[in-house]
Design a protein around this nucleic acid. Structure first.
Lengths: 340, 340
DNA sequence: ATTATTTGTGCAAAGGTTTGCATAAACTAA
DNA sequence: TTAGTTTATGCAAACCTTTGCACAAATAAT
């Protein structure tokens, strides 16, 4: 069996409590004792058992993150790997680890959360991709368990969350396109049940409104975050009597697929149709033409999320309800003034 | 304080051991008692404390995964998110969670592994991106701690690992290019210290050898897994007196960057230069021209790694040392017969 | 009716820490 | 010296389970 704190204690001729205090740098321990104990710890190759420690302190230094349900699909999106990258980096720097779990459906997902929370496996939880009536949120609130949401909750306004101002971002894009002279602008949204989709659509329609352009439902589409889905919608757009001169999407992957589909059908981008993406993934600047997009500070969102969560866990600092990561419009080759 | 097993026991008029046995479906418990206890558990909203359980069973149901050191850089690569996706999916399906950690340098990385292992935070570990003299491997071997390696170890042959036959894959690509008529083929490799890079280069040179084409060191380059690095190398290639007619790379991102750089300098792909990638990320089929690549079953590797690890943990099944995931060459638009 | 067997449950130890409180030792002040 | 402080350490309880072993009750066999 592994060497425990009592072995060290015996060997050093002190009590386990003293060893424990040495480990935690308790000020009451004398220099001499501390040195002596540390020496023994080294000799014996002692390493504290975190489980035992966790059990008594009720603290694990683990942050749970629940991958969105159709993890399979969403993870393909660079957005997710990017945000997780930010989380892991930040967590590691403050000595936390990231515990990832997922469920293949809503029920399993909640079960997983329950398991983590009530099994005391994590100190806090980060929720990704919020939608309306998220049962996880209700559960966590009820349990008064520390958590932060990436995105915005439609149901509760007092939840610590990390988000962009998606409405403003989307509005700004649309404004810019309008200022270029575009009047017929299509909007290819991600799944409507996602709050982020709603917000972006919201910003879009606001910009139209303020410019006095009628909001045309036929120019609004719902797509999955997949190339296939976007391609299909694009084909439909191509079949329209009066085509839009610009298309705004909710993610670079969709933007890319749209561009490709247009291209394959003989429509040049941006000459015959402008396209703008979202999230500013590396894809946006890699492809040809480079895609105009919105940098939403994905990596930073990940970092901020764990930072905010840890603050909540420790009960320190202000419990700022909403942290807004600034966005930035990146204009690239996929946009220009309309042809006609 | 949360409700514990003894509360349940008291309420149900049995002993804690009985409750524990009910939970684990011990066959010795009578139907009647079981029902009674379960009812009380429900009423009280009891949920076992996993930490306590872990402490006594010495089992956590967590799998540790150590992100490669420059996690920042590598994670950008779709390969990583894809393989992790496979791991999480598989792990969730067999009721394991994934605990991710990382370190910003080799020393920190080892420290993180030590912490996980000796702190008994995980039941096993998956190592990514193996290179020569990996201290993590030595440590884990010494500790006799269950782990599997994604990739191949140059130092030890008896390590359970999940890998492709990179030599064969690379060789097959090269052969095919040769059969198309290419004679001057450049090889843009990932970092040389990675085993996977060595293997792919190895397959490349083997194919040249068997075709009687001299191996030209000036046609072999070392690149980081970044577009910038690949672009720089491409510029150098463009400056060569006799340019290659085809370029093989070790990853799609690099392939993409190469194509773009060639294009920007007036060289058409595949007409004037063929390019082939590796890993068959979604990028490969999304971009224009679509990139010929090698599907190495990344997602499946993630799944297999978890499966193999859990088998090792449970000590069941054969401890097959090396699991080889089959690869598949995907020929797309970026390759054709050489111009001259 | 007695013994042997099966079935269901409880006792108590073990797992490795942390920490409030008590105490011993050393020092300071009178 | 005596009392009062400070400093350094130890004791033992608590955290919540699991599990080997013992035991009692019920059933079966003689």
């Amino acid at each position: 069996m592994a060497v425990t704190i009592v072995h060290v204690a015996e060997q050093a001729g002190v009590s386990p409590s003293t060893v424990s205090r040495v480990i935690s740098n308790d000020s009451r321990i004398s220099q001499k004792t501390s040195r002596k104990v540390r020496k023994v710890m080294d000799e014996l190759g002692y390493h504290p058992n975190m489980l035992a420690k966790s059990l008594v302190t009720n603290t694990t230094h683990n942050i749970g993150i629940v991958l969105p349900r159709p993890a399979d699909e969403l993870f393909q999106n660079q957005f997710f790997s990017e945000i997780i990258r930010g989380m892991v980096a930040k967590a590691a720097s403050i000595h936390y680890d990231i515990l990832m779990t997922t469920g293949s459906n809503a029920e399993e997902e909640l079960k997983a959360v329950e398991r983590l929370v009530r099994g005391r496996n994590v100190d806090g939880i980060i929720l990704l991709a919020s939608h309306k009536d998220d049962v996880n949120i209700s559960f966590l609130r009820e349990e008064k368990f520390p958590f932060v949401l990436v995105g915005r909750s439609e149901d509760f306004s007092d939840i610590t969350s990390v988000d962009n101002d998606n409405i403003a971002a989307s509005q700004a894009i649309t404004r810019h396109l309008i200022s270029l002279g575009h009047r017929r602008i299509a909007f290819v949204s991600g799944p409507f049940d996602l709050t982020v989709s709603k917000d972006r659509l919201d910003g879009f329609s606001k910009a139209l409104l303020e410019a006095g352009i009628p909001f045309d439902r036929d120019y609004v589409y719902e797509s999955a975050f997949t190339p296939e889905s976007a391609a299909q919608i694009t084909k439909h757009i191509l079949s329209l009597a009066t085509r839009p001169t610009a298309i705004i999407t909710t993610d670079d992957v969709m933007a890319f697929s749209i561009i490709r589909t247009l291209w394959n059908n003989g429509l040049r981008v941006p000459e015959e149709c402008s396209v703008v993406g979202f999230n500013n993934t590396s894809l946006a600047q890699m492809c040809l033409p480079q895609i105009s997009s919105v940098d939403i500070g994905t990596y930073q969102m990940g970092q901020s999320a764990v930072q905010a969560l840890v603050q909540r866990i420790k009960g320190e600092g202000f419990e700022q309800a909403r942290i807004i990561i600034p966005h930035q419009l990146i204009w690239r080759d996929s946009v220009q003034v309309p042809a006609e």
